[in-house]
Design a protein around this nucleic acid. Structure first.
Lengths: 186, 186
DNA sequence: AGCCATAGTATCGACTCAATACTAAAAGGA
DNA sequence: TCCTTTTAGTATTGAGTCGATACTATGGCT
């Protein structure tokens, strides 16, 4: 018998391990999450407000975290010229280099000890669980751009991919990254 | 194909949800973890040092967390008479009552949306993953007393269960709880 | 122009967390 | 028995988290 509370305890304890690991490299767990996010987000999503939605925290807190990363020289902030309220965040070379020492990767070894079948199960089951959970609390899924219902693949004539929601052309790399506006294709 | 990094991202995002939920009821995530721990630990394990091992933090930090819970009236601290260095922690009635509003339970609903097979898989796979991970970093497993190699079941003559390591009698409830000294039965 | 929504910053207070330094009690050896 | 070491826990400091609140600046809308 597989008790639901037992699974919750496993989640709790695994979360604690991740959290403890997050104190490496002079950063805090939340700072690693932010750094990772900006490395995986497409150009519509590299903003403080998108990170706020991703982390589910208040914008004040996120502002401080971004400030801390900025002071450490790991990210650059650029005011958007079209809408001067918005700020574009980009990893610096230093930020990219630090990401290569991401402490989360140390868990990859434990995962590689599992069988392929187990990894497949985990991928599916954790994915289902996360999606259900986010839906229950109106969280955004932040899926990969190219799996979005608004994604318009490039035509054979050589025109680029496009986002049907924002009416913007998409580079190949942007379409591989995650997006705030993501809605699962029907 | 099930990419290991994808699973790590799922862990990261689920951990964030747990963490955010942990700000309910006037407590902080770590305080909830401590409160939960003391409700699930047997009498050899309800001490600051055992919680330190469980959470994998430094004893200074744990001391502060315990102090915070004490100030809130959720736990009692008692100096051990046999060894006056040690402190026994027990939940107060108020602590037990608060535990009934544990925010972690809100995730039980998402888990119940999964199929029984998926829950079974999660239970097994997460358990394997956690055990492997803890072993890699010399963390203690904190299993249930009655599954320990030192657990000695009561004899038919009515004598109580016993811990073969500490040479102490075990009540029925103590044997169901988790223990710092736990080593898996061979 | 006037109003409201949106994007982000600033500050406060309680707390986390590692690091360091400390006290007190037990254990163990010469 | 004295003395040293180990164990259990506390106290303090400094950087950061985090929600709450209040604020500024920009853009949209009528």
């Amino acid at each position: 018998m597989s008790n639901i509370d037992d699974i919750l305890v496993l989640f709790e304890r695994i979360s604690r391990v991740l959290h403890n690991d997050g104190h490496a490299g002079g950063l805090k767990p939340t700072q690693w999450e932010a750094l990772r996010y900006f490395s995986r987000a497409n150009r519509f999503s590299r903003s403080p407000s998108a990170l706020t939605a991703y982390l589910g925290m208040t914008k004040g807190t996120v502002s401080q975290t971004i400030n801390a990363l900025n002071k450490k020289g790991l990210i650059d902030k650029t005011v958007d010229d079209d809408d001067r309220r918005q700020v574009q965040i980009d990893l610096t070379t230093k930020g990219l280099k630090l990401l290569a020492q991401d402490p989360l990767e140390s868990l990859a070894q434990s995962l590689s000890k599992l069988s392929g079948a187990q990894r497949q199960e985990l991928h599916n089951d954790l994915g289902d669980f996360l999606r259900t959970t986010l839906r229950r609390r109106d969280g955004l899924p932040f899926g990969a751009c190219k799996t979005c219902r608004y994604f318009k693949k490039n035509a054979p004539d050589g025109s680029p991919h496009k986002c049907g929601l924002l009416e913007e052309p998409l580079s190949a790399s942007d379409s591989d990254l995650i997006c705030v506006e993501h809605e699962k294709a029907g």
